[in-house]
């Protein structure tokens, strides 16, 4: 199946173009009588984070292939997963009147971004056990992270993994929306993937699941690259790859700024 990939560009004419592209597919596909499945395209599969980055929206468009019956319409769930990293979670306790971080626990391979959008509430689409095995939804994420924490007590592990999910959600790194996927007509769907300014860079994957009658019919994975670019990337790389020279650079910058300011204000 064709999957066009374009360079990052969020203009509306582009979105319209993709829409037309999908529309064409929809009218071509039933004629060939393809098996059940989905085809997708993105407005941008590379998102650069530059000095003025305040977040981004990526529109994912798709079309449902195969037979569609009016009495049993298909559902779509889109999960976007970011790069994974080991984190340390701590719980605060009151020590001498002050709240102190205590009880550290390592949580391995935590996705630094996770968003789930669906055409209907998740549990209306598929049973919890199926969603769990596919890693769809915050509940499945909690149980998965619980297994990544090395503690005896499973209740404690669950409290920690719930906390991780809650904190990541508060930071806008985990998102969920029961009506995030809009199905247009019978076959077309679109979802808006929101990325906040604090989104980590790395390889992301948009996973599109097609369900009907509580069963998984098809699945398609689309990679998205979030990379820091431009001036912002330059500074970041400099700081992490040549930390000593970065420090020297910061000092020189401060000296120049201080002297320039004095020189400027002396004149008046």
């Amino acid at each position: 199946m064709i999957r066009n990939s374009y360079i990052a560009d969020n203009c509306s004419s582009r979105i319209f173009g993709i829409f037309l592209f999908c529309l064409t597919l929809v009218y071509l596909v039933p004629a060939v009588k393809a098996a059940d499945g989905v085809i997708t395209d993105l407005t941008s599969d590379k998102v650069p984070i530059e000095w003025n980055f305040t977040g981004a929206n990526i529109f994912l468009f798709g079309a449902i292939e195969g037979e569609i019956r009016a009495d049993n319409k298909p559902d779509v769930i889109v999960v976007v997963r970011g790069p994974k990293k080991g984190l340390v979670a701590r719980k605060k306790e009151r020590v001498a009147g002050i709240w102190v971080n205590k009880n550290p626990n390592k949580v391995s391979s935590v996705p630094l971004y996770y968003s789930v959008a669906s055409s209907r509430p998740l549990l209306d689409i598929a049973p919890a056990s199926l969603l769990d095995s596919l890693g769809i939804g915050f509940q499945s994420l909690v149980s998965k992270l619980s297994r990544n924490i090395d503690v005896e007590d499973s209740n404690v592990a669950e409290q920690y993994s719930e906390a991780v999910v809650r904190i990541m959600e508060k930071q806008g790194l985990y998102k969920s929306g029961a009506s995030g996927v809009k199905i247009v007509g019978d076959r077309l769907f679109q979802v808006n993937i929101k990325l906040d300014a604090n989104v980590p860079s790395g390889d992301f994957y948009a996973d599109v699941y097609l369900f009907r009658g509580g069963k998984l019919l098809g699945r398609r994975i689309t990679p998205i690259t979030i990379h820091k670019s431009g001036f912002e990337r330059l500074i970041y790389n400099f700081a992490y790859e040549h930390p000593f020279f970065y420090g020297v650079f910061a000092v020189i910058l401060a000296v120049i700024a201080g002297l320039t300011a004095t020189a400027l204000f002396k004149q008046d």
Binding site: L87, A89, R90, K91, K106, A163, K170
Partner: peptide, 9 residues
């Protein structure tokens, strides 16, 4: 409000 905190290793 939040007793837990998360940091990178």
């Amino acid at each position: 409000d939040e007793l837990y905190s998360v940091s990178q290793m």
